[in-house]
Amino acid sequence: MHRSRVYALIIDAPRDEADAAAAFWSAALGVPAGPAPGEPQFIDLHGALPGLVAAVQSVDDAPRLHLDIETDDPVAETDRLLALGATQVARWQECRVLRVPGGHLVCVLPVESDRELFDAQARAWP
């Protein structure tokens, strides 16, 4: 058995537009934006989605939204999502990037949130 939960909504923006995107979303959502410690490609939107991380990510690709799913077993969670029809398209650090039916991206990563929050919100999977 393993557990997982949606951890973050990430707004991917082309590198040269990421600062403007972060400024827009900060103003639109009425929250402060600031750099993510140790993650220079991310600009956090602090408090935009209570219980979740919201951030703008600078990418060398087209603009899009994607979800991050955190789990206590990345291999098992990836296998579960692959069995549901996702395909793995990349790996980045400990993150497995999947394309799910409908074409959206989902990243599967080890638990990043506070352990109490994860334990309270994660779903258990056989």
Results as ranks from 00 to 15, higher is better:
Ala48Ile: 00
Gln57Trp: 01
Ala76Leu: 07
Arg96Ala: 12
Ala120Pro: 06
Gln93Phe: 02
Gln93Leu: 13
Leu105Val: 04
Trp92Gln: 15
Pro126Met: 07
Ala23Phe: 11
Ala124Pro: 01
Glu112Lys: 15
Pro32Ala: 03
Ala27Trp: 00
Gly47Val: 02
Glu94Cys: 06
Asp68His: 04
Asp79Lys: 12
Val111Gly: 12
Leu117Thr: 11
Val106Tyr: 11
Gln121Ala: 14
Gln93His: 15
Ile69His: 04
Glu70Gln: 10
Val56Leu: 15
Ala36Trp: 12
Val59Asn: 12
Ala33Lys: 10
His66Lys: 02
Asp119Gln: 09
Pro74Trp: 05
Thr71His: 03
Ala8Gly: 05
His46Ile: 11
Ala28His: 05
Asp114Phe: 05
Leu67Gly: 03
Leu82Pro: 03
Ala54Arg: 02
Ala54Asn: 00
Gln93Gly: 15
Val53Arg: 14
Cys95Val: 13
Ala90Ile: 04
Arg99Met: 08
Pro50Val: 01
Ala124Met: 06
Ala83Leu: 07
Glu116Met: 09
Val108Ile: 12
Pro32Arg: 02
Trp25Tyr: 15
Pro74Leu: 02
Arg80Trp: 02
Ala48Gly: 03
Gly85Trp: 07
Ser4Ala: 14
Arg5Lys: 12
Arg91His: 13
Val31Arg: 00
Asp61Met: 01
Arg91Lys: 12
Gly47Lys: 00
Ala76Tyr: 09
Asp60Phe: 11
Val106His: 08
Asp16His: 14
Arg123Thr: 13
His104Gln: 15
His46Cys: 06
Gly30Arg: 04
Ala28Ser: 06
Leu117Cys: 02
Pro63Met: 01
Asp79Pro: 03
Ile10Lys: 02
Ala86Pro: 06
Gln57Glu: 13
Pro101His: 08
Trp92Tyr: 15
Ala27Thr: 03
Leu65Phe: 15
Asp60Arg: 11
Pro110Arg: 07
Pro37Phe: 04
Val100Gln: 08
Leu29Asp: 06
Pro74Tyr: 05
Tyr7Thr: 09
Ala122Ser: 10
Glu112Cys: 12
Gln88Met: 11
